[in-house]
């Protein structure tokens, strides 16, 4: 809360901005199964979901995603199948770019004003969701995530 506005301002600001839409990488030699992601609970059917997939704690905290997607929002739910990942630990963060301006809006003190969420529906506790809460394993069989946003 209060004092944490300082901390959250900086961290939250990075949350949105680092999710760049990147091109799909060449398929690695040993591919994991597909990751099926369902985004549910969308209350405002406008704009887009900006989704980042991360393969390490450092990247999740503010580095580059291994995959990024922009999913147009036209209803209460959106889906994405992610392929080409190597087996391992990943975490997803997403924000709903409600006004479609391509960035996560924040208020004058840097607090997000557009909805955001993470894999495992990892909670925010005085700051963005943690890697420990958001990480999930992607195996040869793939993985499935349902992330509630809004």
């Amino acid at each position: 809360m209060f004092d944490h506005t300082f901390k959250t301002a900086a961290v939250f600001a990075s949350l949105g901005l680092v999710i760049a839409v990147v091109n799909a990488r060449p398929a690695p030699a040993q591919e994991a199964g597909a990751v099926t992601v369902t985004f549910s609970g969308i209350t405002r059917p406008t704009g887009a979901l900006m989704v980042g997939v991360y393969d390490s704690e450092a990247a999740f905290a503010g580095g580059k995603p291994v995959e990024g997607f922009r999913l147009t929002v036209d209803g209460p739910q959106a889906n994405q199948v992610i392929t080409g990942l190597k087996p391992g630990s990943y975490a997803i963060k997403v924000f709903h770019d409600v006004d479609g301006d391509g960035r996560m809006n924040t208020n004058g003190f840097g607090i997000p004003t557009e909805p955001y969420a993470a894999s495992n529906n990892a909670p925010s506790r005085m700051g963005p969701p943690s890697w420990a809460d958001a990480r999930f394993e992607v195996t040869a069989e793939g993985a499935a995530q349902t992330i509630t946003i809004d």
């Binding site: 209060f2 809006n105 208020n107 004058g108 003190f109 607090i111 004003t113």
Partner: peptide, 8 residues
């Protein structure tokens, strides 16, 4: 207003 969300 949307940009004033969560302002104290």
């Amino acid at each position: 207003s949307p940009e004033l969300a969560h302002m104290p």
